[in-house]
Each structure stands twice: as structure tokens, then as C-alpha cells.
């Protein structure tokens, strides 16, 4: 019987922790459906008395363009950094040469650096390349800083491809590019999904690069626009939360649909890196 009691206690703890974890989200989402009146009349964890879509509608107008911007540069930079990371990881994992490990370590240092250490030059580079305040600038930046983690992930995945497969392809007459194109890439569906989901989440969630590279509507990412809402709607919590809901929605959908791949990405990235 004691065992039974322990199990029940265990589930109670688990559910309580789940509740604590979801609480901020829960109250945030509820608030997004509250009118200003409900904001005062209801406690933060209560359902609204008269649910309204007004906050969501009002903030949609503000968030639509930034979300489009974010989608454009996030998807583009995700694809580019995955491709480059895949090729680099492939060479470093399966065609190791003298010094390849050093090159690998030098590349993945890029995962860990505080971006503040490159922020001033980054702004200077972007304005010189005429990419300041442009989607192109954000794509370039996110691709470049995405390569290290993508390389790390792909190298871990490719290290699991049997060496004999590569040897067989070499003996069969394939060169380094043909092996990649005809064999390794075809075996990379899962690594690409994992890395892409991982990168999508990373880039979507970024705030700092957007903050320093964008200035206007043409490139403003959703994260930065959301932060701006804070100043615009002081104490208008329902509008702030509505904006948050809009911004979170795409990444939340990705997580709920492709979560298991993201988890694999986190694990691969952490265990090895």
C-alpha cells in the first residue's frame, strides 16, 4: 500500500509542477482575451467574464508585418545555415584530415561567444555592406552565427553513419561531393528536420540582432516589435499579452507539432557541445 501512496504523491508533484510551469502562459493567454474592464474585475487566473477578441485584433495590425518579416528571414536563414552546416559537418565528420578537429573546435567556439563582443563591428559591417535595416542583413547575420551550431549538430549525426559506407562509395568511384550528394544527403532527412526545427526556434526567438540591425518596418522582427509594444501600451496588459500570443504562436505551433525533433536537437547539441 505504501508503494501505491508513493505513486500517487509522485503524480501529484508532477501535476503541480506542470501547473506551475504552465501558469505564466495560462494567465498570459487568458489576459489576451480580456477587455479592460475584465482586467480589473477578474483575478489574473480567472476566465474573462465576457471574452473578447479586441486585444488580439488591435495588436494584429501592429504585429502582422513584423511577423511576416520574422518568417521570411527565419525560414531563409534556417535553410541556409542548415545547408552550410550540413556540408561542413559532413566534411569534418566523414573526411577528417590533419587539423580538421581544430577547425571544428574553432567553428563551434562561435556557439559560445557573447554576441556583445561582435555587436559594434556587426553594425559597422552591415552598414558598409548596405544591409543595415534590411532583411538581407538579418539573413546574413543569422546564417553566419547559425553555422557553428548547425555544424555541431550535423557532425554529431554524420559521425553515426558507418565509415564503411563512405569507404564503399569511394571504392565504387564516388568523389567527396558525389558521396555527399548521392548518399549522405539522402540519409539526412531526420538530421535536417532536427536542425531546422532547432534553428527555426533559435532565430525566431532572437532579439539582440534584430534590436541592433533593424530600425524600421521593412526589417523589424516580431520580437523587437513586441518589445516596442511595452512602451506603447503601458499597463494595458491585455494588449501586451495579445501581442505576446501573436508572436509566440508560430514557434508554439512548431514546438507542439515537431517538438520531438526539437528535443533531439537540444540533446544532441548539449551532450556533445
Amino acid at each position: 500500500m505504501k508503494l501505491h501512496f508513493n505513486r500517487i504523491l509522485l503524480y501529484i508533484i508532477l501535476i503541480f509542477l506542470a501547473f506551475v510551469t504552465l501558469l505564466p502562459l495560462w494567465t498570459g493567454i487568458l489576459t489576451a482575451f480580456k477587455s479592460e474592464q475584465d482586467l480589473i474585475l477578474t483575478t489574473p487566473v480567472e476566465f474573462p467574464l465576457s471574452p473578447t477578441l479586441d486585444p488580439l485584433i488591435e495588436t494584429f495590425g501592429l504585429m502582422a508585418r513584423p511577423i511576416m518579416n520574422s518568417l521570411v528571414f527565419t525560414i531563409t536563414a534556417t535553410i541556409l545555415s542548415c545547408l552550410l552546416g550540413s556540408i561542413t559537418g559532413y566534411v569534418l565528420a566523414l573526411h577528417a584530415f590533419k587539423g580538421s578537429n581544430t577547425i571544428f573546435v574553432l567553428i563551434i567556439v562561435g556557439i559560445f561567444i557573447p554576441y556583445q563582443a561582435v555587436l559594434v563591428p556587426l553594425v559597422l559591417i552591415m552598414s558598409r555592406l548596405d544591409l543595415y535595416n534590411s532583411l538581407g542583413g538579418l539573413i546574413l547575420t543569422h546564417t553566419a552565427y547559425g553555422i557553428p551550431i548547425c555544424t555541431l549538430l550535423f557532425r554529431s549525426f554524420y559521425a553515426e553513419i558507418p565509415k564503411s559506407l563512405i569507404m564503399a562509395a569511394k571504392v565504387d568511384g564516388a568523389g567527396i561531393w558525389t558521396i555527399y550528394w548521392r548518399i549522405v544527403l539522402r540519409l539526412s532527412v531526420l538530421p535536417f528536420i532536427v536542425t531546422a526545427v532547432f534553428q527555426f526556434t533559435n532565430i525566431w526567438n532572437d532579439f539582440l540582432f534584430g534590436l541592433v540591425i533593424s530600425r524600421g518596418v521593412e526589417s523589424m522582427p516580431a520580437s523587437v516589435e513586441l518589445a516596442n509594444l511595452q512602451g506603447g501600451f503601458v499597463a494595458l496588459w491585455n494588449l501586451q499579452m495579445a501581442g505576446t500570443v501573436w508572436y509566440t504562436l508560430p514557434s508554439l505551433v512548431v514546438y507542439l507539432v515537431l517538438g520531438k525533433y526539437l528535443i533531439r536537437g537540444f540533446m544532441t547539441g548539449a551532450v556533445k557541445g
Binding site: 558507418p162 564503411s164 569507404m167 564503399a168 569511394k170 571504392v171 565504387d172 568511384g173 539522402r186
Partner: peptide
Amino acid sequence: PQDRDGAMVFQDYALY
């Protein structure tokens, strides 16, 4: 290897 005209069979067969 591709210029040597040898064929190889591996222990794990290395089938694609």
C-alpha cells in the same frame, strides 16, 4: 580508390 579499379565487400556490407 576510384582510380584503382578494385571492388570491395565490407564486413557490414555497407549497402546504401
